[in-house]
Simulated assay, not measured.
Amino acid sequence: MKLHPLLFEPEILSFLFLSINFFGSIIVCFILRTWPLSIFFTCLYILLMFFVNHGLTCGRHYLPIKKIPNQTVIITGATSGIGRVCARRLAQLGAKVIIGIRGQERAEKVAEEISKESLGGTVIGYDLDLSSLENVKNFAERIDSVDILINNAGSLYETYSVTIDGIEKQFATNCVGHFYLTQLLLPRLKHGRVVNVSSIAHHLVRPADLDYSLRQFKDKYHGSRVYALSKLAQIYHASELTRRYGVKAYSLHPGTIISTNLQRNRPFFRRVAFQILSMIGKTVEQGSMTTLFCALSDDAKPGCYHSDCQVRRSSQLAMDTRRAEQCWNETERLIKEKAK
C-alpha cells in the first residue's frame, strides 16, 4: 500500500513532528500528573525539538553553481519572494534575466534593485499584467529569445472579480495569462525550459470543481478552491506542453512559504494565523530551490510534478491525462474567444 504523497512534504513532516511532541507531552503530564523533566532538561528538549524541526522544514537543498552565460531567462512576478530570489541567483550565474511586473516604471526599478543585489548581473524589467491578454501579448512581442521561462507569478483573492477580458481574475492571473504567454513564446522555446510554479494546494481540488468557467463560484466565492484549481491547471499545462510539443516543461510545489506577498489580499486574522504556521514552512530562499532545480538540473523530469528538489507524485486528479487535455482545450478556447 502506497503512502499518500503529501506525507513526504517537509511542512507535513514538520507538522506531524510538532503535533506528536505537543500531544505526547500533554499525555505524559496527564498520566504522571506532573512534568517529569527539570528546567535544564526541558530547555534541552525544546532546543532539540527546534533543531530537528528546522531540519524537517528545510528539506533538500539545490544551489546551482554552473554558469549559464548567453542564456535568457524570463520570470513573471519577481517583485518579491521566490521570483526575486530566482532572478537574483540566475543573474549571478551570468544569465540575462527579464522580469515581468505590472507597470513599466516599477518593473525597471525592481530590475535595477535585483541587478545591484546580484552584484552587477543583467536584469531587465518589462511591464506585464497577466490579467490582461493584450498586455501579455505586448510583453511577448518585446522578447527576442528565451531559454528558460519561469511562470512564477500568483495571486490569491478572497472576493469574486473579473479581468478586463471578462475572465475570473485569480484563474486569469495564475493560469490563463501564463498559458497565453507560453503559447506566444513557444516558437522560441523549442529547446528551452518552461517552469510552472504550482502548489501543494492542487490536492484540494475535487472533480466537481473542474469547471473552468468558474460559474459555480460566482455567487459563493471560495478563493482557496479557485487558487487550488488554478494550480492544478498549471500542472496540466506543463504535462501537456511536454506531451504535445516535446518541450521540457516542469511543474512544482515550492514549499509552504509564509513570508511572500501571496497572503497580502487575505483578512488580517488569517494573515496572523499563517504567520503562526511559519514554524513549519520554508524560507523564501529555501522555497526558491525547487524552482531553480527545475530550471537548471538534469535530474528534473520533463512533464512531471516536483517538490523539495525532486520528482514527486502529484494528486490522482493531476495525473489524469484526459482531464489535462480537457483543461488545455478549454483554456485555449477561452483565450481564442477573449483575444478577439
Results as ranks from 00 to 15, higher is better:
8 F>G: 12
10 P>F: 01
12 I>F: 09
23 F>Q: 00
23 F>R: 00
24 G>W: 13
28 V>I: 13
39 I>V: 14
39 I>R: 15
43 C>P: 13
48 L>T: 10
48 L>A: 11
53 N>T: 02
53 N>Y: 02
55 G>N: 15
58 C>Y: 10
63 L>Q: 12
63 L>W: 15
65 I>L: 05
68 I>G: 08
69 P>R: 00
73 V>W: 02
77 G>K: 00
79 T>Y: 10
83 G>Q: 04
85 V>F: 10
86 C>M: 06
90 L>S: 07
100 G>V: 06
103 G>K: 10
103 G>D: 08
104 Q>I: 08
107 A>P: 03
107 A>E: 01
114 I>S: 09
114 I>V: 06
115 S>L: 06
117 E>L: 14
119 L>K: 05
123 V>D: 12
123 V>I: 09
125 G>I: 01
131 S>K: 11
138 N>L: 03
149 L>F: 13
151 N>M: 12
154 G>C: 07
155 S>K: 15
170 Q>P: 03
170 Q>S: 06
171 F>P: 07
171 F>M: 13
173 T>W: 04
179 F>W: 10
183 Q>D: 07
184 L>V: 09
184 L>T: 05
186 L>T: 14
189 L>K: 11
193 R>S: 01
193 R>L: 00
205 V>R: 08
206 R>S: 07
206 R>K: 13
208 A>G: 07
209 D>V: 13
215 R>Q: 09
215 R>L: 08
219 D>K: 03
221 Y>K: 14
222 H>W: 11
223 G>M: 15
226 V>N: 12
226 V>H: 14
230 S>Q: 08
235 I>Q: 07
236 Y>F: 04
242 T>P: 02
245 Y>W: 13
254 P>I: 11
260 T>R: 03
261 N>F: 06
265 N>R: 13
265 N>F: 11
265 N>I: 03
270 R>W: 14
270 R>V: 12
270 R>G: 10
277 L>Y: 01
281 G>C: 00
283 T>V: 13
290 T>W: 02
297 S>D: 03
303 G>K: 02
303 G>T: 07
303 G>R: 10
304 C>W: 11
305 Y>V: 00
314 S>V: 05
325 E>I: 12
339 A>C: 04
340 K>T: 10
340 K>H: 10
